[in-house]
Design a protein around this nucleic acid. Structure first.
Lengths: 337, 337
DNA sequence: TTGTAAGCGTTATCAA
DNA sequence: TTGATAACGCTTACAA
């Protein structure tokens, strides 16, 4: 059904290899300009489409990128995935998407299936800090990490500047007059959770504020956990007037905890999230949060990976930090005396 | 680097064809059981992974499915996509995901790129009712539509039962005492918009209620449009006490319109959405809506497509309707006298 | 039960 | 500038 190089060659009375050369931009200059033209015309007329399995078999390049994320239904990711898709597809690459649910076994299995598919490289958004696979993988494939960086080894990465984001958050409530500021941190095994918690301590120290018992981590990124943990935090330390949460889900948990303790937001407690997921402007109260440029993280990661794919030798390891911004809504306000 | 059939054959002193047969479940019975065992062991030891480009080239099956959706960042889709991925990957298939942004030209281009990749079939969530591509595509590939059905031709599809969903919505407000019920419909070009609008008319007729000027369509599925249209509706027809929106975004637009007109929800106006996207329990007020089983729609679509891929001849066209359910929250209540 | 050989569609090397 | 040829790794008649 689908036309092949051979078909075109036959029709034109030339050799298939000539057709191949004419159609490949990198080799077209080796062919007589007139022939190139004839071949292009014929190819278009027969609507020839190269068979990627054949060329892939020959060149051992699938033009395919493995994209590993924890969970597509987490609203943080669709924007990033679209960012990747948009720039990858423009370059003739296709992302193969898998979900790990933050389970190391699933992750290993998924990465194996992507390797079986002969992907040309990886974009990884896996959250865990300990990561045995990473080193091995990075030694065999071009990879780019998103939304996290590595501690021990230097790997190409694209992430929001958490240090800066947390600073924006803390400064925001500090500037409104808050001094009793706490952090509801992400899980300790999580890269972003860890990084944001560290950043919180640093910023607080710079402001001359104490973080004693005011930086508590949940064990999972979910609303229920956050609510529980925030309940404990507020019970133990009722002087807190502002909580910086490590992401929007946690912030929602804080809001629920506050509601249960009959604290009004922001009158009695200011709450600030992180990420600015869709609909955070519509929750009750509309959530003040730190917006990370999701689409751009994805597209930048794709660009970075493509540049590694293009260069033969080692491109220098580039760690891109994108700047987040503060989005002020109704969940924060001055502390009430 | 990666081991091939030939490597295994060499090591074992058998012919590559034998190794191929031994490793392929469909042909393993043709091979001496002891040989099969030896081959399997060796393959595992050398961690052999079949090269899908080679087998695909030979068999012209890529074990790849084109998944065409309007926009991954629309929260309706990630659940469906995961449903597909989960069941496709279990069967050894990989989805290739593309976004059309509801633009016919983009869609044509994306479908072309999937065909170029030699996908074995398609799952389409495109929303437009008119759809020239569909017939041609369906004649050449196994396809399954999700979240919509076709009017003229019969094609395999998986969708929620909109007739039933709208009935649940209307009955809900009717049972609470509402009689002045309106529908904010989706765009006329949209399959689901059209179907839900029709269903609304039918249900209202059965209840003996008038729909005169009470079934108004937006021109795009977005909050702003919905707000504008709802403003007009409420201005023209202030007796309305309940609005059934064609999806959750439209319902949010209605809520914003009501707020602008100083109507309290649900005291002055009940609002009900459709889909139950993530976080609809957290908006203000928490949205009563119709939940459609997103993950299940995706997995069922995948199953349906796989069954078509498995059968040689024509499997009968199956149109699956999944049952939605009513989720009552705070945006609906009895009408106030 | 196993081996032989051809071929899927493309590209890369070599020769003309 | 073009042609011939082999090879990528796998599957599948067909033969033994």
């Amino acid at each position: 059904m689908a036309a092949t190089l051979k078909d075109i060659a036959q029709k034109l009375g030339v050799h298939p290899a000539t057709v191949s050369r004419a159609l490949n931009p990198r080799t077209a200059h080796l062919v007589n300009a007139a022939t190139v033209e004839r071949v292009r015309k014929a190819a278009a007329a027969m609507n020839y489409v190269p068979n990627p399995m054949a060329s892939g078999l020959r060149t051992s390049r699938s033009h395919t990128i493995g994209v590993v994320i924890p969970d597509l239904t987490n609203p943080l990711f669709p924007g990033m995935v679209r960012g990747m898709q948009d720039t990858l597809s423009r370059a003739g690459y296709t992302p193969l998407l898998v979900n790990t649910d933050n389970d190391p076994a699933t992750e290993a299995q998924m990465v194996a299936s992507l390797r079986a598919r002969r992907v040309d490289g990886f974009i990884l958004a896996t959250a865990r800090r300990d990561h045995p696979l990473l080193v091995e993988l990075a030694s065999r494939f071009p990879i780019v990490l998103i939304n996290r960086v590595t501690e021990s080894i230097q790997l190409p990465s694209v992430a929001a500047d958490d240090q800066h984001g947390i600073r924006l958050a803390v400064d925001h409530v500090y500037d409104m007059g808050h001094r009793e500021i706490a952090h509801l941190a992400g899980p300790k095994w999580s890269s972003t959770g860890h990084e944001r918690a560290q950043a919180f301590n640093r910023v607080m120290r710079e402001l001359g504020l104490s973080v004693a018992k005011r930086n508590v981590a949940v064990t999972a990124w979910n609303i229920e956990e956050a609510k529980e943990t925030a309940m404990g935090m507020l019970a133990r330390d009722p002087r807190i007037t502002a909580i910086v949460a490590a992401n929007d889900q946690l912030a929602i948990g804080v809001i629920e905890a506050a509601r249960e303790r009959r604290l009004r937001i922001p009158r009695d407690l200011s709450v600030i999230g992180y990420n600015d997921m869709p609909f955070m402007d519509l929750v009750d109260p509309p959530l003040t949060t730190i917006r990370v440029p999701q689409h751009e993280i994805g597209s930048e990661a794709a660009r970075l990976l493509l540049s590694h794919l293009a260069e033969e030798g080692g491109t220098p390891v580039k760690q891109v930090r994108l700047t987040p911004e503060l989005v002020v809504r109704a969940s924060t306000g001055p502390p009430h005396p």
